[in-house]
């Protein structure tokens, strides 16, 4: 059939061919690069954006404030408390007599309050705070960087957990069918009718809100949409002739599900993957926006957006956050599109 077309690809293993197909989608490939670079940079946020110097050379000795706390007295200060390296007094101590300190490119952490701005908070972009500060005097660039990292990690975690549960339960339902399917479908209907948002509000008031709690709560509900699709794929697939052929070969049920039905039932899973990640990021953002999400000190895009709403004249809050959100979501969707094409074995 396509012997001539695939002549080149003959010597490639399936994984290599998948990678070729992925690269053939240039938008997706470029998006992967850009997103990868941004994400890896954000993983090193502590090095890029921190109120502590990376290295301090004080009186012939090296100190690493990023990994360890040092009291101010270690650098000739007055107090026995952890050093505030942005204090002009400390800065002076660290720069005289051959001492030096190497600061991060952006010398603020997500929770560093800049007490030394020239403008009232929120202060507009300036040479000191490149993207300005929020209404508590915290650097917006730092909060965006940490917030992006948290959002993406949160999105990945929620997607992995939700997809795993959804595929597992959908697969069992679809493969065994019959009574098990019928009973489980009712369980899903009941579970689905629980008011998710109220539960979140209730739990937010009972427990200390945290990222882990949010992941658990959202995972409890997030798997259902996917389970339906996987169930349908398995129901369809289990009557296919290749499953019959596998049974005739003596393949066990688990192996049939794993090797035959799962790869063929992955289309909805992979198609929905980018939307699930962006959905998860948006969920976190919206909950934070509503004040139901992570605790206030945590860097969060949603919290920045809500500050932008409260301080509508401080355009640097809303526009930058909006840009980061839209950029990240668009990149994820382009990558997902290319991934879906790459997994489709029918493309040469």
């Amino acid at each position: 059939m396509s012997t001539a077309a695939s002549g080149l690809a003959l010597h490639l293993s399936p994984a290599q061919r998948r990678w070729r197909r992925f690269r053939a989608n240039r938008l997706g490939f470029a998006s992967l690069w850009l997103f990868g670079v941004l994400f890896i940079l954000s993983l090193f946020a502590e090095v890029l954006s921190n109120d502590r110097p990376l290295v301090v050379h004080y009186q012939g000795q090296y100190y690493f404030p990023v990994v360890r706390d040092y009291p101010e007295t270690a650098f000739g200060g007055d107090f026995d408390t952890p050093t505030d390296y942005l204090d002009p007094y400390v800065k002076r101590l660290l720069s005289k007599d051959g001492n030096w300190a190497l600061y991060a490119p952006n010398p603020y952490r997500y929770d560093t309050i800049n007490y030394f701005t020239d403008h009232p908070n929120p202060s507009p972009p300036s040479a000191v705070n490149l993207l300005g500060t929020d209404d508590r005097g915290r650097d917006v660039l730092a909060r965006l960087l940490y917030g992006f990292r948290l959002s993406v990690l949160f999105g990945f975690a929620l997607t992995v957990v939700g997809t795993f549960i959804g595929v597992l339960l959908g697969a069992l339902q679809g493969y065994y069918g019959g009574r098990f399917d019928l009973a489980f479908q009712r369980v899903i209907e009941i579970w689905n009718s629980m008011p998710e948002l109220y539960l979140l509000i209730i739990f937010a008031s009972i427990f200390q809100p945290s990222v882990l709690l949010l992941i658990i709560l959202l995972s409890l509900f997030g798997w259902m949409g996917l389970a339906d699709y996987v169930r349908a794929e398995f129901l369809r697939g289990r009557n296919m002739e290749y499953v019959k052929a596998a049974r005739a070969l003596g393949v066990t049920n688990t192996a049939i599900m794993w090797r035959h039905l799962l790869p063929n039932g992955m289309t909805p899973v992979i198609t929905f993957l980018p939307f699930r990640i962006s959905g998860a990021i948006l969920a976190l953002t919206s909950l934070d926006f509503l004040g139901l999400g992570v605790p206030p000190t945590t860097p969060s895009l949603g919290e920045l957006l809500s500050q932008g709403k409260d301080n509508i004249e401080a355009w640097w809050l809303s526009i930058t956050t909006f840009g980061v959100l839209v950029g990240a979501l668009a990149l994820l969707i382009f990558i997902g599109e290319a991934l879906r094409e790459a997994m489709d074995t029918r493309r040469s």
């Binding site: 399936p14 002739e241 019959k244 052929a245 005739a248 003596g250 090797r259 035959h260 029918r346």
Partner: peptide, 24 residues
């Protein structure tokens, strides 16, 4: 029965649907 299936095998009608499209 599964271990004995080695000795009695089957080939089905439609070669388009009897091979899983995602396996080499």
């Amino acid at each position: 029965l599964r271990p004995k299936r080695r000795d009695f095998q089957a080939v089905f009608q439609d070669p388009y649907s009897s091979l899983s499209p995602r396996l080499t």
